[in-house]
């Protein structure tokens, strides 16, 4: 999203927000940013924020102040990008990243989650195209399709609210209780823990199905029925 406010541009990145400031006086920009945040608390709450400060020269006290102000509002400042070496040094001193690499689909994406355990879920609202690989320590929920050639590797369960036509590995660290479900289950391959099943033939009239490891230790798909 891009705001009309001339000082600040906000763009959604895949893993957070990128706020770009210009060279107007720092105090003005700082106030403008915080005003913007306070105007839409719900939008910013919990966001990961990268800040592009153009050629602003910022010192430790200024950045610390901003970081704390943002943190009070539930925003995690993780990167500061700058053309000024001084600012870059400041950011490094504070342990902030100074570069945001554009995520590329050929690099598998690992999502790091600390202290949250296996009950965490990664929710992705998009279609995974061929060549995309998602790895996650908890559950994965996809609102979209998983196309052939895409891969999901999760330590927990995998749920696809869409067509599952790629490869899914649930319980990747050995959890044999993990399951995989999809609205339309026609994967190229499914794995739960160390059990593997080959392709399941696509169905004429797809219905939601759940795959688990059955009593014989094999993967088994069942139609989902409510209740």
């Amino acid at each position: 999203m891009t705001e009309t406010n001339s000082l600040i541009q906000i763009k959604g990145l895949r893993d957070g927000l990128l706020v770009s400031l210009d060279d107007a006086p720092w105090e003005e920009q700082r106030v403008a940013l915080l005003t913007q945040v306070d105007g839409q608390p719900a939008f910013f709450q919990g966001a990961r924020l990268a800040l592009d400060v153009a050629s602003q020269v910022l010192h430790v006290n200024e950045l610390v102040d901003l970081r704390d102000k943002l943190s009070e509002r539930g925003i995690f400042l993780w990167a500061v990008i700058s053309e000024s070496p001084t600012t870059e040094k400041t950011a490094q001193l504070l342990g902030l990243a100074t570069r945001i690499s554009k995520p590329r689909p050929e690099e598998g994406r690992k999502f790091a989650v600390e202290d949250l355990g296996e009950e965490t879920a990664l929710f992705l609202h998009r279609t995974l195209r061929s060549g995309t690989r998602i790895e996650f320590v908890g559950h994965v929920v996809i609102l979209g399709d998983v196309n052939p050639g895409a891969e999901i590797v999760a330590e927990g369960n995998v749920m696809v609210w869409g067509r599952l036509r790629g490869m899914v590995h649930a319980g990747a660290k050995g959890n044999r209780k993990a399951m995989i479900c999809a609205l339309d289950l026609s994967p190229t391959q499914l794995r739960i823990a160390d059990e593997v099943s080959a392709a399941i033939r696509p169905q004429e009239h797809p219905r939601p199905e759940i795959v688990r490891i059955n009593k014989d230790g094999k993967l088994q798909a069942e139609l989902w029925s409510p209740g």
Binding site: P105, E106, R129, S130, G131
Partner: peptide, 13 residues
Amino acid sequence: VRDADRVIGILEA
């Protein structure tokens, strides 16, 4: 089609 899907993914990225 699978390769096209891959390319479309890269174009989006």
